[in-house]
């Protein structure tokens, strides 16, 4: 800070307030658009507010919504569906993504073309992803039924009308869209590894498997954990694809937490109760987020350098 010596007193005051002026607009918008709604959910969760009635006439019900939530089989089912969905999709995506990245990490001609293709599923809007896969899984004209029938002689199934099959369909759709994300992150991590370490382990006689499990994967473990937690948060945020493909049905077989909140609020029209479920969702997501921050907070690390 060579310049500080020369600046005069009023100028220094000016510099003290400047950072606050710079951050104020963004902080205000984030507070009003993200933090305030979270606080308002907390507030509304103590009220019984029905759609179409003014907020003022909402009745204060204390902890009633939370008491109801604890023993609500529908909430429990949607939480269970979310966890099951997360376990299936994330474990398959991580396995496929890591395996493919390890197999294909060697730089190769045309790699950039392939990488461009691999990020396409991530760029397609979730609504469109839902529409495409709803068509593929359609009972009458869907391509899945056609190929299962002609290749394997399997009878046409009503994919999105059966609880187990519909769940399978949304899992497969998610795997299609998100495996490339894990693949690209792991590739980037592998290619950032210092080559000396890999050469050293090779000189020491490590074979291909040993190099993967004893050197490469441990060295990118924090990347893997962060990718996993980011996907976990996405599972709790997801709703568009299921909204389009199944609407959460049949029954509540594909109704993940986010979609459950939306349906409770605007289908069942219970805004207060939906807010209580939203508070539960926020609590879950914040616990995961804080673990991400503890593992690697990019802004903290760099500022301390």
């Amino acid at each position: 800070m060579a310049a500080t010596d020369r600046t005069e007193v009023p100028a220094r005051d000016y510099r003290v307030v400047t950072p606050y002026l710079f951050i104020a607009p963004a902080v205000l918008v984030m507070f009003a658009g993200l933090a305030f709604p979270v606080l308002q959910s907390l507030y509304l969760s103590f009220y019984d507010w029905k759609i179409g009635t003014p907020l003022k006439s909402a009745e204060y019900v204390g902890l009633d919504n939370y008491i109801r939530l604890i023993s609500d089989p529908d909430v429990r089912e949607s939480l269970w569906v979310t966890i099951r969905f997360g376990l299936w999709t994330i474990s398959i995506e991580m396995f496929l993504g890591i395996a493919l990245a390890l197999l294909l990490e060697k730089p190769i001609r045309g790699a950039s073309v392939f990488r461009t293709i691999f990020i396409l599923p991530l760029m397609v809007s979730p609504v469109v992803v839902g529409l495409i896969w709803r068509y593929l899984f359609d009972a009458r004209v869907g391509w899945v039924n056609y190929y299962l029938g002609t290749w394997f002689g399997i009878e046409p199934q009503v994919w999105l009308g059966d609880a187990e099959l519909a769940f399978f369909a949304i899992v497969l759709t998610d795997i299609w869209q998100w495996t490339p994300f894990i693949f690209i992150i792991v590739i980037a991590g592998l290619q950032a590894l210092p080559s000396e370490v890999l050469e050293a382990s090779h000189v020491d006689g490590a074979n291909w498997w040993q190099q993967i499990f004893l050197v490469k994967l441990p060295m990118i473990s924090s990347i893997l954990v962060i990718a996993l937690l980011m996907r976990l948060i996405d599972v709790f945020r997801a709703l568009e694809v299921m909204y389009i493909m199944t609407g959460g049905g049949p029954g509540r077989a594909t109704e993940l937490m986010s979609l459950h909140i939306y349906n409770r609020a605007f289908d069942a029209q219970l805004l207060g109760y939906a807010s209580a479920i939203a508070v539960l969702l926020i609590a879950i997501v914040f616990v995961i987020s804080i673990s991400i921050l503890l593992i690697g907070n990019p802004m903290k690390d760099k500022s301390d350098v």
Binding site: I23, V27, M30, G33, L34, A35, F36, P37, V38, Q40, S41, L44, L55, I233, F236, R237, L239, M257, S258, L259, I261, Y262, A265, F266, L271, A274, S275, A278, L281, I282, V285, F286, I288, S289, I290, L293, N297, M299, K300, S303
Partner: peptide
């Protein structure tokens, strides 16, 4: 501010629905 920014990044859009409506 830095930490709070990273934390609110995770707020699920579904959570915004009811407050936005209100």
């Amino acid at each position: 501010v830095a930490n709070a920014t990273l934390l609110v990044r995770m707020v699920p859009p579904a959570v915004l629905a009811v407050p936005a409506f209100a």
